[in-house]
């Protein structure tokens, strides 16, 4: 059976709808970078092994390199370009800037998108592999440095900025908790 291998899709990115023809092989990552000129989302490995391409899909973090664009139709896509409030940086962005939570900056958009989701996942009571007791009776784990490290481990940083990344996530989580 011959299948159509391309189609016209509508992607909702940062609240805006974009209609574009795509080869079904096009990943969401390539659609963002090559077709929509949203190059803040980075390609580090293209195989789901580094996290540089992390975006939010329906509010949850995901690696856009393993997400086919055609399969992202109908979902709310948020990229690094869409997380700030106009000129006002998202608290996570501000913390990365202030605490030098990066060096070359290439993994940074993915780290920031991931961190935004980590703070929400934690607020929702999700346990992690660093949580000593995952049973609901144990209550939600505090967002310790070890919890942040584990939850942020899907975002590799080759420059070795993890120490300040953890501090930035903690500071942003505190700021949001206080807000």
């Amino acid at each position: 059976m011959a299948h159509s291998t391309a189609g016209v899709i509508t992607l909702t990115v940062n609240g805006e709808k974009h209609t574009l023809p795509v080869d079904h092989r096009t990943t969401l990552l390539d659609a963002l970078r090559e077709r929509l000129d949203l190059t803040g989302t980075k390609k580090g490995c293209d195989l789901g092994q580094c996290g540089a391409c992390t975006v939010l899909l329906d509010g949850r973090r995901a690696v856009s390199c393993l997400q086919l664009a055609v399969a992202a139709e109908g979902r709310e896509i948020t990229t690094i370009e869409g997380v700030s409030d106009g000129e006002r940086l998202h608290p996570v962005q501000q913390a990365f800037l202030d605490l030098d939570g990066y060096q070359c900056g290439y993994c940074t958009p993915g780290q920031i998108c991931s961190a935004i989701a980590v703070i929400e996942e934690h607020a929702a009571g999700w346990p992690s592999a660093a949580t000593a007791d995952v049973r609901p009776e144990a209550g939600p784990p505090p967002l310790t440095a070890d919890e942040i490290r584990e939850r942020m481990s899907g975002n590799l940083c080759r420059c070795g900025a993890y120490v300040s990344i953890v501090q930035a996530v903690a500071q942003a989580a505190d700021a949001e908790g206080a807000a």
Binding site: G51, R60, S153, G154
Partner: peptide, 10 residues
């Protein structure tokens, strides 16, 4: 929780 990463588990 021991598998992959938060993004991949989502």
């Amino acid at each position: 929780l021991a598998g992959a990463s938060g993004q991949l588990r989502n």
